[in-house]
């Protein structure tokens, strides 16, 4: 039947073949389902903002104006001047003089009183006006401060937006091989609200036409340009500057 004792039977051959095939199927399955070499590259480059100190979380509220302290107006009442007593020749005269003197004194007193009252009123008035002015000024200051902060926030957002666009474009710039120096090219880019580039005009050449062309190609390749997080910040026209080494 067999020439050798260790000759392989047909059955063994079939089984071995099936095993070998199965082995490879198993490895293939492991390779396909076990290992996913899918590599997804994030299209956005990381733009890093460097902060020297952390911005305050909440916008500082305008401080309520301090309670108005009304300065107490103390009308100064001057003590009446000492009455000069004249020599009295006789009683009638004395009486008359006395009467006249009293009258005069009263008149004087009244005049003084009026004067003092008027003065006090004037003082009060002045204090009130000063207080009002102070309050108005404070309010104005607070408003200015808020406006300033809003403007700064807007500016930083805008800067971020512009930086994102520039970063994206810069990634597409293929530097010409014989680039020398670090000249600046300025472009006016007009974009559609969806980030498509409508036009890229060279405003100020870098002096190297090859670099200008490279930047222009990069601007067109960078479509769609990144959009700002706040649609209100979208700028149809952008003025962008590029340098070969930044």
């Amino acid at each position: 039947m067999y020439a050798y004792a260790t000759q392989v039977s047909q059955q063994e051959k079939v089984i071995s073949g099936a095993f070998a095939f199965g082995m490879h199927l198993l490895f293939l399955a492991l390779l396909i389902f076990g290992v996913t070499w899918q590599k997804k590259v994030e299209p956005q480059a990381n733009v890093v903002d460097l902060w020297t100190n952390l911005p305050s979380q909440a916008q500082p509220k305008a401080e309520p104006p301090p309670p108005v302290v009304k300065p107490e107006v103390r009308p100064k009442v001057e003590p009446p001047p000492p009455v000069k007593t004249a020599a009295k020749p006789d009683i009638a005269l004395k009486e008359k003089a006395e009467k006249e003197r009293r009258l005069l004194e009263e008149k004087q007193k009244e005049a003084k009183k009026r004067e003092v009252e008027a003065k006090a009123a004037q003082k009060q008035q002045q204090a009130k006006e000063a207080e009002l002015q102070r309050q108005a000024k404070e309010q104005q200051d607070a408003q200015n401060k808020i406006a300033e902060q809003a403007a700064a926030a807007r500016k930083s957002q805008m800067d971020k937006y512009r930086t994102a666009i520039r970063e994206k474009i810069k990634r597409f710039i293929v530097l010409p091989p014989n680039m020398q120096g670090n000249p600046e090219a300025e472009f006016d880019v007009i974009q559609l609200p969806n980030g498509k580039v409508l036009d890229a005009k060279l405003k100020r050449s870098s002096g190297t036409p090859a670099y200008d062309n490279a930047v222009e190609r990069a601007i067109r390749k960078a479509e769609p340009l990144p959009l700002p997080p706040d649609p209100a910040l979208f700028a149809r026209e952008l003025n962008l500057t590029f340098r070969p080494q930044e």
Binding site: A5, V8, I15
Partner: peptide, 22 residues
């Protein structure tokens, strides 16, 4: 290489059977 791998596995199994029997 795939062919070599399949063939070598085939012979590996055949040899396993043969030696076991021997």
């Amino acid at each position: 290489l795939l062919l070599a791998s399949v063939l070598s596995w085939y012979y590996i199994f055949i040899k396993v059977f043969t030696f076991k029997r021997a």
